[in-house]
C-alpha cells in the first residue's frame, strides 16, 4: 500500500479537480486542508510514502525530512522551489518532482495589476461603501502618464512592462544585474534602485525571495517613495520590511497592495489585517481554478510515472 498525503488544500478542491483513484487500488490518498506547523507535520506525515506540496506552503528542511522515514517521493506544484533541502532529500533516497506552471505564470502578473488598479482607485473601499449605502467617498489616481517601477524584469516582471505601457505609463526597472540592453526589448528603462523608488508612482516587485532579497525594500526605500505612491508585492513577504511598511501605511505616506506576508496564513490578529491605505489579498498570485486543475493533474501524472520507475519533471533524485 502506498500512502499519499496532499497538503494545504485550503479550498478543499484536491479531490474534485482530479481523479486520485486513477492511481490504483493500492494507493490511499489523504488530503489536509489546514496548514501544518513543522512539529505537527513531523508527527502527522511520518507514515506517508508520497507528499504532494502546494507551492512553498510547507517548507521541507533537513530537520523535517529526517523525521519522515517512510517518505520516497515529493511532488511540488509549480516550478522553482526554494524551501526544500534537496541534498537532505536525496541523501534519504527521496525523489522530488514538480508540476508544470500552467496558467500560474500569467496569474501572478494579473493579480499584481488587480492590486495596482485596486489601490489606485480605492476599489475595495468604494465597493464596500456601495454595500453600506454610500456614494463616492474617495478620489483615485490616474495611472496613464505616470511611472511604473518594476523590481525585477524576469519572467514575471517582463509581462508587467508592456501592460504598463498599454496603460500609458512610462516603465522603469531595476534589479541587481539589470542592464539597459536587457531592459530595452521589454519597453522598460533600466534605472538605479534609488531612482526607481524616487520616481515611480506604482512599484511592483517581481524578484525571487530568499536571503539575497530579504528586506530589499526597507525604511530608506519606502521613505524615498513619492507621497501616495503605490507599492505592490506579489512575490515574497520578506522582500519588504514589514515594520517599515506598516509604519508608512499607518501614517498615510504611501499606499500598498499586498498578496504575500512574512507568515502565511497571516495571523488573525496581525496589525496588517486592519492597516489603512492597503489592499490585501491572501496569497492568491497563482491561485486560479485553471492553475489548480493543472497542478493536481500533473501531480497524479508524476506519481504514476514514478511508480512505473520513470519519474518525470525531476528536481532531485537519488543517484541522479
Amino acid at each position: 500500500m502506498i500512502r499519499v498525503a496532499v497538503l494545504d488544500d485550503y479550498q478543499n478542491v484536491a479531490r474534485r479537480y482530479v481523479d486520485w483513484s486513477s492511481l490504483g487500488d493500492d494507493v490511499t490518498v489523504d488530503v489536509f486542508g489546514e496548514p501544518l506547523g513543522s512539529e505537527e507535520a513531523a508527527a502527522r506525515l511520518a507514515d506517508y510514502d508520497v507528499l504532494c506540496l502546494m507551492r512553498e506552503r510547507l517548507p521541507l528542511p533537513r530537520s523535517l525530512i529526517e523525521k519522515l522515514p517512510r517518505l520516497k517521493l515529493v511532488v511540488v506544484t509549480g516550478g522553482r522551489v526554494r524551501v526544500i533541502d534537496f541534498d537532505a532529500a536525496v541523501a534519504q533516497g527521496i525523489t522530488v518532482c514538480h508540476t508544470s506552471a500552467g496558467e500560474s505564470e500569467h496569474a501572478t502578473p494579473e493579480l499584481a495589476w488587480a492590486l495596482i488598479l485596486a489601490a489606485a482607485r480605492h476599489l475595495p473601499d468604494e465597493f464596500q461603501r456601495m454595500r453600506e449605502g454610500s456614494w463616492q467617498q474617495t478620489i483615485g489616481t490616474t495611472l496613464g502618464g505616470k511611472t511604473l517601477g518594476l523590481i525585477g524584469l524576469g519572467k514575471l516582471g517582463s509581462r508587467m512592462a508592456p501592460i504598463g505601457r498599454a496603460f500609458g505609463m512610462r516603465v522603469v526597472a531595476w534589479s541587481p544585474n539589470l542592464t539597459q540592453e536587457k531592459a530595452a526589448p521589454h519597453g522598460a528603462e533600466a534605472v538605479s534602485k534609488t531612482s526607481l523608488f524616487e520616481t515611480s508612482d506604482a512599484i511592483s516587485i517581481h524578484i525571487p525571495g530568499g536571503a539575497a532579497s530579504k528586506d530589499l525594500v526597507g525604511a530608506a526605500e519606502i521613505d524615498a517613495m513619492k507621497p501616495g505612491a503605490i507599492l505592490v508585492n506579489t512575490s515574497r513577504g520578506p522582500i519588504v520590511n514589514e515594520a517599515a511598511l506598516l509604519a508608512a501605511l499607518k501614517e498615510g505616506r504611501i499606499r500598498a497592495g499586498l498578496d504575500v506576508y512574512d507568515i502565511e496564513p497571516l495571523p488573525k490578529d496581525h496589525p496588517l489585517r486592519t492597516a489603512p491605505n492597503v489592499v490585501l489579498s491572501p496569497h492568491l498570485g497563482f491561485v486560479t481554478e485553471g492553475a489548480y486543475r493543472a497542478f493536481y493533474q500533473d501531480t497524479v501524472d508524476a506519481i504514476q510515472a514514478w511508480r512505473m520507475g520513470k519519474p518525470i519533471r525531476v528536481l532531485a533524485a537519488p543517484g541522479a
Binding site: Y10, Q11, E103, A107, L280, S281, P282, H283, L284, V287
Partner: peptide, 19 residues
C-alpha cells in the same frame, strides 16, 4: 477575498485566470 481577509479569513475561493 479582501473582505474575508480583513475579517480574519484566508483564501475562501478560486479566481479565474485571464489568459
Amino acid at each position: 477575498e479582501a473582505a474575508s481577509f480583513r475579517a480574519g479569513g484566508w483564501q475562501v475561493g478560486f479566481g479565474r485566470g485571464l489568459s
